[in-house]
C-alpha cells in the first residue's frame, strides 16, 4: 500500500510539474509582449521596464522557468499588478467559497443519488426502476449553467423563494444562498450517481455473502441497507474524486449566475480586467486541487479494494 501510495503521488507530482511547465510556456508563447498586455497600452516606459525586471523577462527562458518554480515552492504566485497584493493571498481568500459550494452540491446529490440507485436496484425492472433510469439520463443531460439560469428564473425571480445574488451572512443566510447554486451543480450528479449505485448494487446483490445473509433469515431491508449498500457505494468515492474537475467547472458558472464570490468569479473578473497573474494563479491552484483529489480518490479506492493496487 505504501509503495502504491508513493508511486501514485509521484505520478501526481510529475503531472503537476508538466502541467505547470505547459502553462508557463503557453503564456510565453503568446505573441506580444506580456508586460504590455499586463499593463495595457497607456503604461509608461519606466513602469514597463520595472515590471520586466520584476518578472525576470529579460532572462533566458530556462532561467525564467527556474525562477518561477523557485517562487512557486515558496507559495509565491506573483504580485497582482493592480492592487499590489500577493496572488496567492487573493486566490486563497476566494477558494473557501468555491469549496463550500462544491461540498454542498456533492452532499445533497450523493445522498439522493445513492438512495435512488439503491431503491432502483432493490426493485429491478419495475416501473419505479424505469422512471428512475429515465430521470437519471435526463438529469445527466442538463448542463449546470443552464439549470442554474432556469432555477434562477423560476425560484429566485418568479417565485422569490430564494435569494438571487451573493453568498449571504451568518449560518442560515449562507445556507439559504447556497440552495440554488448547489441545486444547479448537483442535479446532473444525482442521475449519474444513481446509475452508478444501481449497477454496482446489482452486482453486489448477486454475491454469496448476500445469499448467506438471506439464508440466515435477516430481513430484506437490512440485507439491502447494511450488507449490500455498504459495498455498493465504494465506486461513488472514486467518481467524486475524479469528478472534481467537472465540479470546479460547474462552480465557475454557478458563481457567475448567482453573483457569488469564489474562484470562478475571480477568474472571470480578472479576464475582463486583463489581470493575467490572477487568472494563471487561479488556474494553477484549481489544477493542483484537481490532481490531488484524483490521486486521493485512487488511494481510497486502493485502500478499500486491494485489487486496484496492482492494476495498470
Amino acid at each position: 500500500m505504501l509503495l502504491y501510495a508513493t508511486r501514485r503521488f509521484g505520478l501526481a507530482l510529475l503531472i503537476l510539474i508538466v502541467a505547470v511547465t505547459v502553462m508557463f510556456l503557453m503564456i510565453r508563447a503568446v505573441p506580444g509582449d506580456p508586460v504590455q498586455i499586463m499593463l495595457g497600452p497607456r503604461a509608461t516606459p519606466e513602469l514597463q521596464a520595472r515590471l520586466t525586471a520584476e518578472l525576470a523577462l529579460d532572462q533566458p527562458i530556462w532561467k525564467q522557468l527556474l525562477i518561477f518554480y523557485g517562487n512557486l515552492m515558496q507559495g509565491d504566485l506573483g504580485i497582482d499588478v493592480f492592487s499590489g497584493r500577493s496572488v496567492t493571498e487573493i486566490v486563497f481568500q476566494q477558494l473557501p467559497h468555491t469549496l463550500w459550494l462544491i461540498l454542498g452540491s456533492i452532499t445533497w446529490s450523493a445522498a439522493l443519488g445513492i438512495a435512488l440507485g439503491a431503491y432502483a436496484a432493490a426493485h429491478p425492472n419495475t416501473v419505479i426502476d424505469r422512471v428512475t433510469a429515465a430521470i437519471s439520463v435526463s438529469f445527466v443531460a442538463a448542463p449546470a449553467f443552464v439549470v442554474a439560469l432556469l432555477s434562477l428564473l423560476i425560484f429566485a425571480v418568479n417565485l422569490q423563494w430564494f435569494p438571487a445574488i451573493g453568498a449571504g451572512e451568518g449560518f442560515w443566510g449562507r445556507l439559504n444562498h447556497l440552495v440554488l447554486p448547489a441545486f444547479a451543480i448537483g442535479l446532473s450528479w444525482v442521475g449519474y450517481i444513481a446509475r452508478l449505485v444501481r449497477a454496482s448494487m446489482l452486482e453486489v446483490m448477486g454475491e454469496s455473502h448476500i445469499r448467506t445473509a438471506r439464508a440466515f433469515g435477516i430481513n430484506e431491508r437490512r440485507v439491502v441497507m447494511v450488507y449490500a449498500l455498504r459495498i455498493a457505494i465504494l465506486p461513488v468515492v472514486t467518481v467524486i474524486g475524479v469528478g472534481m474537475g467537472f465540479l470546479l467547472s460547474s462552480a465557475v458558472f454557478a458563481e457567475i449566475v448567482f453573483a457569488r464570490p469564489g474562484l470562478g468569479k475571480l477568474v472571470i473578473d480578472s479576464i475582463t480586467t486583463r489581470n493575467y497573474p490572477i487568472v494563471m494563479g487561479s488556474v494553477l491552484i484549481s489544477t493542483g486541487l484537481f490532481v490531488v483529489s484524483t490521486a486521493l480518490a485512487d488511494l481510497i479506492n486502493a485502500w478499500l479494494d486491494p485489487r486496484a493496487r496492482t492494476a495498470k
Binding site: L14, A19, V252, Y276, F290
Partner: peptide
C-alpha cells in the same frame, strides 16, 4: 500517457478560460 494525464489534469473550463484570456 503522461501527456494525456497532464491535459486531463486541467479542469476543462479553467483551461478554456486560461486560453481565452491569452489569445
Amino acid at each position: 500517457m503522461l501527456l494525456f494525464d497532464t491535459i486531463r489534469s486541467f479542469p476543462t473550463v479553467m483551461f478554456a478560460l486560461a486560453v481565452v484570456a491569452l489569445v
